[in-house]
Design a protein around this nucleic acid. Structure first.
Lengths: 391, 391
DNA sequence: TTTGTTTGTTAGGCTACGTAACATAATCAA
DNA sequence: TTGATTATGTTACGTAGCCTAACAAACAAA
């Protein structure tokens, strides 16, 4: 994750630590009653009173109702208030630009999907221009109940490097070719596959898991790794960039272009191989992966063989990952990764080659990436606002 | 890391948080004056006074002298006191059992190396018996200035699994076949390669680095990964168990026995290959890796070819690791890993295949593993004693 | 209406820090 | 030697941020 633009001071901003804890709880839980917060944070009711008063003075919390228990007085329900503000999250994808405006506690205020005129293999001018336009449009219709804009998050189809890493050979700066972020708002950048992994952690099938790996199998194959609840970035932002996996028994089989593996296991190369080796006496070959999977489910032997072969290759990559980080859970995502056929073959291969590991399919769909960058941008905004980050 | 035996309560043991901070500082720094501690921990002098008094009441600190600055009154120098106690650390290796007795701040009190009668490929009875004997001997000569025994740490040539992982197929329990730990002392277990990695972090060439990978090339090849300053364990204690790395381009080349890779890149298999392919017209083939390296340095073409081939294989493994975790630094250890010849070839291969990464040789030598388990056992003891662990 | 229960506030105390001021112990310049 | 200066450590005291105890308020059930 890289943060550009306004940085602001992190840390104890005059709030008591209990007030910060309450804010953080509402940030992560969305809403809660005072007694719930007291229990969860082990705070006394008087302390809760003063914490709420503190946060309320800044408009950082608001009461949204009351809840009646079995007996006794009603409990007041709270959530983050207007002045906690909002964030804009953008998935700058290869075919779509998806945008969400949401509160820090991820309540959706506005959303929009813009389809690019053509599929972009790399981050370039068209994506940057579309992002600039969509963000401007969203900012123009800002309603005053949204409060201040706290952060802009953008998920990029590119490696994203921290300031101390090696930023050469990255296209991350391309996003700013047509998009100039407002100077007072921090911009959070992260790779799109990493964002999808984060979404699996916060909203998806990996919820509550400390460690897991996410493998996205789409146009390219990519991996996002979450360890101890945090995204693994890598020194060069290259953690999970599995293009360079190598096998010492077969050094001569190394692809000449080191990045080739990403595409070899992607949908285009797969379909090219399928079409080339499609039996002449069979029906017309499938045109895309959806058709391939339909044929396979329908019982086509050729399709099943192709799917199985592909799944085994992916299983070998997954086994390699397990061998190195042993995450305990691997989530498969992307167009092909969510297919049950693929899942079972990957599972078989990986568990045969490696240590016992749960392997599951993602259930989040196309929104995963935006949800992930939204989570990261919200966390960043929260840290700037009240500090005391979990780290 | 697995902890067996007495567990004790972690957490705030009646000490103020500043007292705990002071203890932790002396734990990590070894010794410091009051003003140094005040500066480092941002505490006032009165608070330092009361913290020291608190710790002194339990004998957890002791004054060891005074230091005179340019002008002004002398500053009192402190370190951990007798009652902080001591730990016993054991490297239960395949050829030696190395034992260190040290204070929590790693001052060496006693040490001993016992050579096993034969090289043990697996953790078994002989190692367990030797460990039992050495630990008993060390405990027998305990001097009363050592204070109480706080922990026993043992580095094992085996996978080590947490309680929630899958403990089948591990030999870790073998260590207890002839060794019964005293019931009141916690026993810390960790894999020996992971221990060596820890040692690189606390004493060696990776000091001060948050992220790095350590690759040990000896009888077997093994990897230990440190991320955000902490050892990566893996769900099954299998992080860095690179036996199952696979390459999707060559699925048929997968070894039938999945653990084979560890030995393929180890010294025995290497020497077998070298001897088999040694040119008939050349001088006698080398008998071990030391001879091989000497020949290579002396200019032998056959030796150089073998070394280079081996280093390239290792470089491919290193590149795979970099592709997945992108650690920014890889440290090579073990008998072969510290050779400059190997280093340069591994460096070339890895950096050609993967992202820019520093690759260095370990400088710690045979003591690395004991030093690592000592570090882990000391940290565990420190956590039990005063809590507030960094996590 | 009464009774018991839960929620929120008020009053008051305690603890772990801080600052201010002083006591102590050293160097340095005259 | 004798102050002047400076750094260290202690004493006195204030304060923030939590707590418990007690009470007031708001509810359901008897």
């Amino acid at each position: 994750m890289k943060v550009a633009g306004a940085s602001g001071q992190i840390g104890r901003n005059g709030f008591t630590s209990s007030a910060r804890a309450v804010f953080r709880m509402l940030f992560s839980q969305g809403q809660a009653t005072r007694p719930q917060l007291c229990d969860a944070l082990s705070l006394s009711r008087p302390t809760m009173s003063s914490s709420m008063a503190e946060l309320d003075r800044f408009g950082y919390v608001e009461k949204i109702g009351e809840i009646q228990g079995a007996v006794g007085r009603k409990a007041a329900m709270y959530r983050l208030g207007e002045n906690a503000g909002h964030i804009i999250s953008v998935d700058a994808g290869s075919t779509h630009v998806r945008l969400r405006v949401s509160t820090l506690d991820r309540r959706l205020l506005h959303h929009r999907t813009y389809r690019l005129s053509s599929s972009q293999r790399y981050l370039g001018d068209e994506i940057s221009a579309a992002v600039a336009e969509e963000i401007q449009a969203a900012r123009d219709l800002t309603e005053k109940t949204w409060g201040p804009l706290r952060a802009i998050g953008i998920a990029l189809p590119s490696r994203v490097v921290n300031d101390d890493g090696d930023a050469r050979m990255t296209r991350q700066e391309q996003i700013f070719s047509h998009f100039t972020p407002p100077s007072e708002v921090p911009v959070v950048l992260e790779n799109n596959v990493n964002c999808a992994a984060i979404a699996e952690h916060s909203h998806g099938i990996a919820k509550g898991r400390q460690d897991f790996a996410y493998v996205q199998i789409g146009l390219k194959i990519g991996m996002g790794i979450v360890l101890r609840g945090q995204l693994l970035q890598g020194r060069n932002g290259a953690a999970g960039e599995i293009s360079h996996i190598a096998f010492p028994f077969a050094p001569n089989a190394l692809p000449s272009n080191a990045a080739e593996l990403e595409y070899y296991l992607g949908s285009e190369a797969l379909m090219a191989r399928v079409q080339q080796s499609w039996p002449a006496n069979a029906a017309a070959p499938p045109q895309d992966t959806t058709q391939l999977l339909t044929l396979a489910e329908g019982g086509s032997e050729a399709a099943n063989a192709a799917v199985e072969r592909h799944a085994r290759d992916i299983g070998a990559v997954v086994a390699t990952c397990i061998s190195i980080v042993d995450p305990g859970l691997v989530v498969l995502g992307g167009g092909i990764g969510t297919s049950p056929l693929i899942l079972s073959h990957v599972r078989d291969t990986a568990n045969r080659l490696s240590y016992p590991t749960e392997i599951k399919s993602s259930t989040l769909g196309a929104e995963a990436t935006v949800l992930g960058i939204e989570q990261l941008a919200a966390e960043h905004a929260c840290n700037l606002l009240i500090g005391d980050s979990v780290e």
